[in-house]
Design a protein around this nucleic acid. Structure first.
Lengths: 348, 348
DNA sequence: AAAACGTGGCAACCATCTATGACGTCGCAC
DNA sequence: GTGCGACGTCATAGATGGTTGCCACGTTTT
């Protein structure tokens, strides 16, 4: 690889002049330098530049599951804002695995200027970022237990649960079930709490066997739904706190030959990977996904600027984005059972 | 951040000894050094190490659409192999945009030891990797036009098209349509060619209006399917060359109130994001997805080893993975479903 | 004529790795 | 006791490839 010295020699100037040219200062010999760069195919070494400047212009985004379209959407949002501000983004996957996450964080910490993290668990170790000179960390979606607070962009999780519950209650459902996440996941816990509170306020106690914990994955949702729906006394409505588990629940509903909303009302959280293909349209709690990623990147940008300005008092901010209930045809009045609208006959 | 000098001072040894310890040589004072590293929270600067050693132990994977579960699966496969061999992986998105791709490649080239690329188009510029001292590039799924050959892991695209066509032909379909990709995408072109050849050999010419090009995205598949299926004379079978466009086609089929396989037989390529939720089960052409990513990473590893051994004659290899036809219930014998010639009334 | 400004070169600097030569220690063979 | 090699250690110095503060120089402005 050609170095800046090769370019300087070819253009007949000093290396520092080439450097200045590259970095946007006006230079008299710029044409000659450009020509030399072109013929030599010169590209400045990222490592050398990083070493000297102490930054990389790269932000890492670390998510538990790249296969989840929700994360894919937030990534897209963050990437867009990053691009507009001259920051590259790289994506890392932790597979909902807290050890792998730790590994990734440790490894990535020296290579990027900041990290946007969706913690695998509230026990995720953010201690790497506790030091005063550590790179900035922005948390997304879930929160962690560490003593230090970080910039965070979350959503109205509690209200999401409330909206789902209120909707089902309004439709007259009293036997309801919920498929929620691990106890260590703050966001699903909030959704669950909101949901249960509404029913508790209406003097309805959701039985323990109807509160099933999954792992946010499709397979977990499938199993949880099977457990709930195979019971002798089935609930008339089901709330699933994330999209992948909703997929699994739908598969279980399909396998059990249950029809929505005739046999069961279903409320999901987040858009599913296959919206538009599923019939009936699902009733879901939605949030602005791209926007959430974008906000995380904006928080990162202001944090980076604060650091550049040596503004050490810049308080961590927590942004909470709104959720809304989007009505579909997967929920109906309890006991009535509107005519099911299936995509096609399943004639297997 | 603590440097290696700080550690040396704290442990009472020379910096070079710390370096040796870190790099796995046996050192007498290793406990003292470890202790110093621990108390100082020392992490070797990635930039300095990269600059000195000339490598990063990071591989970039660059895909056109992280939202596509097929890519997500290949990423998982590649990541696993990489992890087993001490390589970190980062993921970049190009949004099927050839300019953005160029940007990403240019930017990433100096930061990683190698790149696994799913080119956005066969016109994608791989010239950055033409130089004899450039970092290795492994192509996945699609190929490019450049004169230089690269390690490539592809699948039996042509045979996939043949299998789909043969299946439909065996079922007696003669009026068939295909939703394919841009002409510049080698993989969809091969699928398309295989498909059309089978029918041509049976003296069946697929009319041009039934060969529609999409952009591999859901919206493109939707529009293409609408175009095809709104025609006065509808085909009795449809082949869609990728999963996202299949999702769009399914949505169109839904909107048009067509029933599978009664009104239309459908064959898709690759697993859809929502397998298991869709009814009926789709007839699809499948390939080993994780395995494809894993093979790409293995090619990368052997290539990196060859470079380390200064084995410059190591010929680029092309691996081709098998596809298979997985029967579902979205295809049926032609005419049996009494494929209607006119559109079903839309009663909304 | 003096001040301001654009420009270019020199050299220091970023954090790490490594080659070199010198040195001490140890075990072992003579 | 001496010689020898293996080994671990040290200090030093050079190298990696850029960036940047400082100064000198020349040109332009006031």
């Amino acid at each position: 690889m050609a170095t800046i010295y090769d370019v300087a020699r070819a253009a007949g100037v000093a290396p520092s002049t080439v450097s200045r040219h590259i970095n946007g200062h006006s230079v008299r010999q710029s044409e000659a330098i450009e020509r030399a760069i072109g013929t030599l195919g010169f590209r400045a070494s990222a490592s050398a530049r990083n070493l000297r400047k102490g930054n990389t212009q790269v932000i890492a985004m670390i998510v538990p599951d790249i296969q989840n379209p929700y994360y894919a959407a937030t990534v897209a949002g963050a990437e867009e804002i990053g691009r507009q501000n001259g920051l590259r983004m790289v994506l890392c996957n932790t597979d909902e695995d807290i050890d792998l996450e730790d590994d990734v964080l440790r490894d990535i910490a020296g290579r990027v200027d900041g990290a946007i993290l969706v913690p695998a668990s509230e026990r995720s170790s953010t201690s790497l970022f506790d030091a005063p000179n550590a790179i900035p960390l922005v948390l997304m979606d879930r929160e962690t237990l560490g003593k230090r607070r970080f910039d965070t962009v979350t959503i109205e999780n509690h209200r999401g649960g409330v909206l789902a519950a209120q909707h089902l209650l309004d439709l007259g459902h009293r036997d309801v079930a919920i498929i929620t996440g691990p106890v260590t996941a703050s966001q699903s816990r909030a959704r669950e709490t909101g949901f249960l509170e509404v029913f508790a306020n209406a003097d309805i106690q959701v039985p323990d066997r109807f509160i099933v914990r999954g792992d946010f994955r499709e397979a977990g949702g499938y199993q949880a739904a099977l457990d709930i729906l195979s019971a002798r006394r089935r609930p008339s409505a089901l709330f699933v706190v994330n999209n992948m588990m909703s997929m699994g629940a739908l598969r279980a509903i399909n396998d059990l030959r249950l029809r929505l909303p005739h046999d069961l009302s279903l409320v999901c959280f987040d858009q599913l990977p296959c919206e538009g293909v599923i019939s009936p349209r699902l009733t879901t709690i939605r949030r602005p996904m791209e926007e959430q990623g974008a906000m995380a990147m904006r928080l990162m940008l202001t944090r980076l600027r604060a650091e550049a300005d040596d503004d050490r008092d810049h308080e961590p901010r927590t942004l909470t984005l709104p959720v809304e209930l989007v009505l579909g045809a997967s929920t109906a009045r309890a006991g009535q059972g509107a005519a099911p609208v299936t995509l096609v006959e399943d004639d297997r």
